[in-house]
């Protein structure tokens, strides 16, 4: 009975708290210099841009659970991260400021569908360009060259690259490409492979020393390292190539060219590096050279 009263008390207490919550939050994310929206932009022959114009707002598909890449800040309910800054930059160059952007979180498996349905105008969120996807959607960019890498504890010097994983517990997401690669190339023993439903869980296990390595694209790993730069580090020897692109409708060549121009300019005038340093750069990994835009 006493336990029950306590439990009910806790519940009521937490509900009561709701009425008087704190606003804002202890966000540690530095933000990149915001871009003034361009004026008088025209993109001839782009159905998507016409739709944006008619709506007066731009709808961007993003990830909401990747720290320092695309994350919905739990205390401010604002989207933050590298991908988000890229999305903001593109929107600004199309003439739409931060206040005219609607973000829509879309999980990985429904990205193609969301773009094809027109639920989002374009998608920025760890979206690897590959030929299979190019049949359904098109890609501007790449704006970042990711590659499979390793996240380890800061004091761990025994892991230097994919060949030093033998005897180490390696964690990644159930059924993901990175963990398949570890298995196929036999980088570690099968019983040392640990799978969870999300990277966050792997990072939790890494911090509590239940696993030794988390592996996936370096961009994602850098995001987690940026969250706890004094506890985690990215090894920095990528062993695959995952070019991240901006996904958009398959037949919208005009908008694709426009976004390619925006990205290319940002890479040349230093905006790209500013964005990197303000987000993923917090992990301690220096900015790489931005990738070559692939206009096809």
């Amino acid at each position: 009975m006493r336990v029950r009263t306590l439990a009910v008390g806790l519940l009521v207490g937490s509900l009561a708290l709701t009425a008087c919550g704190k606003q804002g939050g202890p966000s540690q994310l530095g933000s990149a210099p915001s871009q003034a929206p361009a004026t008088g932009v025209t993109v001839d022959g782009s159905p998507t841009f016409d739709k944006i114009k008619a709506r007066g707002r731009v709808v961007i598909g993003v990830k909401q659970d990747q720290p320092y890449l695309g994350q919905l800040n739990p205390t401010t309910h604002k989207y933050e991260g590298f991908d988000i800054e890229i999305a903001k930059l593109v929107a600004a160059k199309l003439g739409y400021g931060e206040d005219k952007i609607d973000y829509k979180p879309i999980p990985s498996q429904s990205r193609e569908q969301a773009i094809q349905n027109g639920d989002v105008d374009f998608y920025v969120g760890t979206y690897t360009i590959n030929d299979k996807r190019k049949q359904q959607v098109s890609f501007a960019g790449p704006y970042y060259m990711a590659g499979q890498d390793l996240l380890v504890r800061k004091d761990d010097t025994s892991i230097t690259g994919p060949t030093s994983l033998k005897g180490k517990k390696v964690c990644s997401v159930t059924g993901s490409t990175p963990i398949q690669r570890v298995r196929d190339q036999q980088l570690t023993e099968p019983n040392n492979i640990v799978e969870f439903q999300g990277y966050q869980q792997c990072v939790d296990q890494l911090l509590s020393k239940q696993v030794d390595v988390v592996t996936t694209d370096d961009a994602i790993l850098k995001g987690y390292a940026a969250q706890s730069p004094d506890q985690l580090k990215v090894v920095g020897k990528p062993f695959s190539q995952e070019p991240y692109g901006v996904g958009l409708a398959h037949d919208d060549k005009a908008l694709r060219t426009k976004i390619d121009d925006v990205l290319q300019q940002a890479e040349q005038d230093g905006t790209w590096k500013q964005i990197y340093d303000a987000t993923l750069g917090k992990s301690g990994s220096p900015a790489p050279t931005p990738p070559q835009i692939d206009r096809y």
């Binding site: 709701t18 919550g21 704190k22 205390t75």
Partner: peptide, 14 residues
């Protein structure tokens, strides 16, 4: 425990 204080988090929990 400070996360409990934020309104957005309380709403997320709800």
């Amino acid at each position: 425990w400070s996360w409990l204080e934020y309104q957005t988090i309380q709403l997320d929990l709800l």
